[in-house]
Write a protein that binds this DNA or RNA. Structure first.
Length: 674
DNA sequence: CTCCTCATAAACAGGG
DNA sequence: TCCCTGTTTATGAGGA
């Protein structure tokens, strides 16, 4: 219906001319999508990508929880909770000693400790872990002792039986069963060892035979076991707390210190704001959950046992402990679960490491040390003189410049820069509005773009671009310069982690923008309707925005054509937003995609108006509609890529669209966490 | 202060 | 009926 009025009201009949060509393409797309929706990915890598994505999603959730926990712990311990720390300093020493030299604490002792609350939740946790480990070890030892005794007994019997065939017959099956049991235990043990080895927690000497019983009975000393548990349960903490070691063993300091909120640099809390952006927390807001549950234990929360797959309700902490010891004692099941958990943790650690690296690279790149709301009048000093090393593979698909999805952008994955930038306070970037505003000057390297691309793809940071710009970018990136609404959605989710949440909101905004702005033209076709961009309109749209330095802009255009303005714009935006820095909680590594091109395009958009009045030095762009010669030929961001048509033109782009979107799309508006 | 842009929310309608 | 698409209106933030 509206399609009639649409083009008209939007003041350009030009767009319609594409109709024919577009429709055919659309069909293509449609079929493509169907194929994919069937579950099979045409491209070989898509299937795995999907799988990976799912895994990542899962891991992500776990990670978030972990991080949240950790964060809370840090705060609680760091902040001191007034209630807790003033009691019974006398007990601190014994307890801490107990923790450092593990020994099983009697239930009474434990209760005492708990009641007196001399320990922070975190410390309790450590303590409990140790206890758990010790108990586990004891159980193991006892078990093996028993088994060995039985074995000897049986052997004796067997010897006797040798004389009396009848007995033998009776014993044999029994023995067999026993042996099986033993074997099982041995396997179990080996598995344990394997896990340990895998994690590097336990190193077996080369010469040491892989005797099943030995390691546990002898080789494994309590501390090792204990450490294992600690590692497993709080690996992330350990890893992080280089700066604040007080986390685990140093009870005295944590308990007593009543210092101000620890300035622990980055606090990741995706759910902190509606945007899911990182924020620095004011101490008060958080920490509640921990104060509510003084008896914190990683396996206990909200009155429920959190042993994987358990969820048994435990009235209080004591009953939980009982439950833990009875239900989750050493058996195959627990062991298996433990192993699984180990792997989960391992994976998370890996992921965390990766993301940390990424974060560091990003921070290095951005030179973010301070958090002044405004990075100065100028665009952002992030002029990265940083020459990003094209760190190899980095596993992220984006590193493949010419995958179907990333036709254009030469993407340099991550900088490995080990530099340590600790932002002490990143302020929350709430639902901030981004505007291009005026600062377009500082040129950046293409690597920066790539990085940013990476960044937005993986971090749930709101991109500093307007919906209109993004939409335009999405459309222009498509081979036919036209997309259906759904495809636009897909692009958003694919390119920006941020848009994987709150779908209802931003989709509404997208639709709103499509309808509202004249620059978006709806073109009816057989299959439905597609959206195209009227560049002229788009450029008209915001002439005033570039209030920056005209001459400078001009310069940029003439000389650096695209990448410069683009980057500048990007920087400007970021600067404006005071750089939504933050660690990525989400590592969605969706598909490949060239955010770079996105950014570029987008910023092109931003730039365009700049150009608009003057010459459009950009030919190549999106000739499609209305035949605006508008665009400056995009300059190769990278020498390598100098040859082909740039990003926009790439055909491959749309493919990933279709498969990945679904993943994100259906998320409830405020999914997970919380 | 006004105007403009933009984001967001929401109501509404038509179509599948 | 529900969902998607698309249009429209209202409101508020923020910048010029």
């Amino acid at each position: 219906m509206m399609q009639e009025s649409g083009p008209e009201t939007k003041s350009n009949g030009s767009a319609i001319q594409n109709g024919s060509s577009s429709s055919s393409h659309l069909l293509e797309c449609g079929s493509l999508r169907e194929v994919r929706s069937n579950g099979e990915a045409p491209a070989s890598d898509v299937g795995s990508a999907d799988l990976a994505h799912v895994q990542q999603q899962q891991a992500l959730q776990v990670a978030r929880q972990l991080l949240l926990q950790q964060q809370q712990q840090q705060q609680v311990s760091g902040l001191k909770s007034p209630k807790r720390n003033d009691k019974q300093p006398a007990l601190q020493v014994p307890v801490s000693v107990a923790m450092m030299t593990p020994q099983v604490i009697t239930p009474q002792q434990m209760q005492q400790i708990l009641q007196q609350q001399v320990l922070s939740p975190q410390q309790l946790q450590v303590l409990l872990q140790q206890q758990q480990a010790l108990m586990l070890q004891q159980q193991l030892q006892e078990f093996y002792k028993k088994q060995q005794e039985q074995l000897q007994l049986q052997l004796l019997q067997q010897q006797h039986a040798g004389k009396q065939p009848k007995e033998l017959q009776q014993v044999a099956p029994q023995q067999l069963a026993f042996q099986q049991q033993l074997l099982q235990m041995q396997q179990l043990q080996q598995q344990h060892l394997l896990s340990l080895q895998r994690q590097g927690l336990l190193t077996l000497q080369p010469g040491q035979p892989s005797l099943p019983l030995q390691p546990l009975a002898q080789g494994m000393i309590p501390t090792e076991l204990q450490q294992l548990w600690k590692e497993v349960t709080s690996a992330h903490t350990a890893e992080e707390t280089t700066g604040n070691n007080h986390s685990s063993l140093d009870l005295t300091t944590t308990c007593v210190s009543s210092s101000a909120p620890s300035k622990t640099s980055l606090i990741m809390n995706p759910h902190a704001s509606t945007n899911g952006q990182l924020s620095v927390h004011t101490p008060k807001r958080e920490s509640l959950s921990h104060e509510e549950h003084p008896h914190s234990h990683p396996l206990y929360g909200h009155g429920v046992c959190k042993w994987p797959g358990c969820e048994a309700v435990c009235e209080d902490f004591q009953s939980f402990l009982k439950h833990l010891n009875s239900e989750h004692a050493l058996d195959d099941r627990s062991t298996a679960q433990c192993r699984v958990q180990m792997q989960v943790v391992q994976q998370l650690e890996l992921q965390l490491a990766k993301d940390k690296e990424r974060l560091q690279a990003m921070m290095t790149h951005l030179h973010v040390k301070s958090t002044e709301p405004k990075a100065a009048p100028q665009p952002l000093n992030l002029v990265s003189s940083v020459t990003l090393s094209k760190s190899a593979s980095e596993a992220s698909p984006q590193s493949l410049p010419h995958t179907p999805t990333t036709p254009t952008a030469p993407i340099t994955p991550n900088t490995q820069g080990p530099s340590v930038i600790t932002t002490t306070s990143m302020h929350t970037v709430g639902p901030i509005r981004r505007r291009y505003s005026d600062k377009y000057n500082v040129p950046i390297s293409s690597a920066d773009i790539a990085q940013n691309q990476e960044f937005y793809k993986n971090a749930e940071v709101r991109p500093p671009f307007t919906y209109a710009s993004l939409i335009r970018q999405a459309i222009l990136e498509s081979p036919e310069k036209q997309l259906t609404l759904n495809e636009i959605y897909n692009w958003f989710t694919r390119m920006f982690a941020y848009f994987r949440r709150n779908a209802a909101t931003w989709k509404n905004a997208v639709r709103h923008n499509l309808s509202l702005h004249k620059c978006f033209v709806r073109v009816e076709n057989v299959k439905g309707a597609v959206w195209t961009v009227d560049e002229v309109e788009f450029q008209k749209r915001r002439p005033q925005k570039i209030s920056g330095n005209p001459s400078l802009i001009k310069n940029m255009q003439s000389s650096h054509a695209y990448c410069t303005p683009l980057n500048a714009a990007l920087q400007a935006s970021m600067a404006e937003n005071s750089i939504p820095l933050y660690t990525t909680a989400s590592m969605g590594n969706p598909t490949l995609g060239n955010l770079a091109s996105t950014m570029r395009e987008e910023l092109n958009g931003a730039m365009e108006h700049t150009n608009s009045n003057e010459s459009d030095s950009s030919p190549g762009r999106s000739p499609v509609q209305s035949g605006h010669p508008v665009h400056v030929k995009e300059e190769p961001l990278d020498p390598e890529e100098a040859e082909g048509p740039l990003s926009l033109v790439t055909t491959a782009n749309h493919s990933p669209d279709f498969d990945h979107d679904r993943d994100y799309e259906d998320e409830p508006v405020n999914e997970d966490m919380e």
